[in-house]
Amino acid sequence: MLKHTHNSSFQSHSANMHHGQMGHDFEQKVGRSTRHVPESDEHNDLIQLHQRRMTAYDDDYDSGIEDMYDDDCPRRDDEELGYLDSGYFPSQPLDVDSDDDEDEDYPSARLTAGKPLSKKHQNYLLTQNGKGWNYRKASVSHNNVPENYVNHPHKIGLSKPTNLFDKIKDRLCDYVDNPILFVRLSCSIALHTVMGTMLASTFLGAGMTLGISAPIVGMVAIPVLGIGAIGGGVLGFYNDFILDKSLLPKDFNWLDGLTRTTYLPKYSFPVA
């Protein structure tokens, strides 16, 4: 026995479109259709209204998007997209522009949520309805994510890439996503370079104090300072880029408290 479900009234997006037929068309486009849910379902006291599938692809998966495109599914032109596509983000200020310049092959809509969005933050949304796959390229931003989390996306938690190459690639993606990490890395290298140079200078000064002749000290000064500077720079790079829990085994954290000088407080969750 089947339960017949029904479409709910379309509310949240209706302000951005005309009433009547257009609303009906939109529901068809986003896959909101009448469904039959078996009564034997484990949550049979609830009536499922809609089911949607949405996918955010990373930029690395552009080719995958093309492969998944079904030529049998007619592409929608930009005029048809209009405000309809923006319905996925009703909480955002809706200012949808057709995006012909960047990619003429695919219909796309840019959601300007307060500021222009960079291309690297564009995600690809793939939606499925009864007619097949529809996809589009939409720009989403981190506007709703607190700044602290955007700036310090330390990898924690669940499963991680298994080999070092993937770990480094994953880490590089973080740096690409968050340019401020590059600034932090530069600061870390600069700080450690200065520290290394100062340490080498201290040894040279101690040598002169102990009576080593000036020419000898002068001969070794440049190499020692160079080694100190380079060593400091390498240590800074290691500290910021390599010494990350996503790149190292769990038991390799003995240097964590000694050399991790540039990390700000890592996790503070503003849960009211």
Binding site: H50, Q51, V140, H142
Partner: peptide, 25 residues
């Protein structure tokens, strides 16, 4: 994301990784 909507209730099935590039999504 697979979204299943039941009036006031919605079930979101997450598949894949959540990271900086798709947290906004």
């Amino acid at each position: 994301l697979v979204l299943e909507e039941y009036h006031e209730l919605a079930v979101v099935i997450l598949e894949g990784c959540v990271r900086a590039s798709n947290a906004g999504f």
